[in-house]
């Protein structure tokens, strides 16, 4: 109980927000808009899971937004050329993994700080995409949206898939040695090395992993609309990092879990509709999100100060 206090407090806050909405804006809970909201967040959730892993390993990846956009556009183009989805999916995941490997190489092998490396890849990829596509949309054939199913069915499939993935990953983080290695490396890379783990390999792996998850998220996004816009991923990195940090994953590594990140994401995702339903202008969304991040970080800071005493 005490161990998961941080996660539980996020869940508590989320429940409080939902309760508040139930009292003051019951319209929020009408099934279809709620499902749409959750579906919109499904790809973000997948990327957030990757981000949780990478922050647990004491790294950061802010290039996910660009990787997301590039994968979306590339996948869109392939689909438009008539590739079947079964082939486009691995292509998108593979492309993401490739970018992740590039980041991972610079961080793990060249020992560069991940914040600057991924900043550089983010700018390069985003501008490269703009250069080639000139902001052009990719129109997708009808068979792609909701996989050719009805909207509700498609949404259920996407949400279901995201949840299954989350459960699997959360299980793996806890029950596979590889998952525990992330924590070990994030806590103390040197101690991990002495315990027989290879921190560089783990770092490389986790970058490849978040890359592939981003490619996967891009595919899940693709299935939601009739066209792909090249700016689709912009701002994703902040949203995801915010969700993960609010969810109790410590930016200093080694601490936190996917469930917390999930709760954090839901909490942040609720901000916008909550504002609308509570008749507060939606322009406050970003400010409120920023304040939530700061609040979470300050809480962590105060807690660690107390425990150090």
């Amino acid at each position: 109980m005490k161990r998961y206090f941080r996660e539980l407090s996020v869940v508590g806050t989320l429940l409080a927000v939902l309760l508040g909405l139930a009292l003051f804006a019951p319209a929020f809970f009408s099934p279809q808009p709620l499902l749409s909201l959750v579906t919109r967040e499904a790809p973000t959730l997948v990327v957030a899971a990757g981000m949780a892993c990478i922050i647990i390993t004491r790294q950061i990846d802010i290039s996910v937004s660009s990787i997301f956009s590039v994968c979306s556009v590339c996948a869109g183009l392939l689909v438009a050329r008539g590739w079947p989805l079964v082939l486009v999916l691995p292509a998108s995941v593979g492309l993401g993994a490739l970018f992740g490997a590039f980041n991972g190489f610079l961080v793990a092998v060249m020992r560069l700080p991940s914040i600057v490396v991924t900043l550089a890849t983010m700018v390069t990829l985003r501008q490269g995409l703009n250069l080639i596509r000139q902001g052009e949309f990719v129109n997708l054939p009808d068979r792609v949206q909701w996989f050719g199913l009805s909207q509700t069915a498609g949404q259920l499939v996407l949400v279901g898939f995201a949840l299954v993935l989350l459960v699997t990953l959360a299980w793996a983080m806890r029950h596979l040695a590889a998952g525990r290695y992330l924590y070990a490396v994030g806590t103390d890379a040197e101690a991990a090395r002495l315990a027989g783990i290879r921190p560089q390999l783990v770092t490389l792996f986790v970058f490849v992993f978040i890359g592939s998850l981003t490619g996967l998220g891009a595919m899940m996004n693709l299935a939601q609309s009739p066209q792909v816009q090249p700016l689709t991923g912009n701002g994703l990195e902040l949203k995801v990092i915010a969700a993960v940090v609010v969810g109790g994953v410590a930016i200093s590594g080694g601490r936190g879990n996917l469930w917390g990140a999930f709760a954090g994401l839901l909490l942040l995702a609720c901000v916008s509709p909550a504002l609308t339903h509570l008749h507060i202008e939606a322009y406050w969304e970003k400010a409120v999100q920023g304040a939530i991040i700061l609040l979470a970080v300050v809480a962590d800071g105060l807690r660690s100060r107390q425990s150090n005493r």
Binding site: Y183, A184, T187, D188, A195, A250
Partner: peptide, 17 residues
């Protein structure tokens, strides 16, 4: 020289397995 963020059982496992 233990991993402070991991549990006792886990620390033992990381060393022993």
């Amino acid at each position: 020289a233990l991993f402070p963020d991991l549990t006792v059982a886990e620390n033992l496992a990381l060393r022993l397995d």
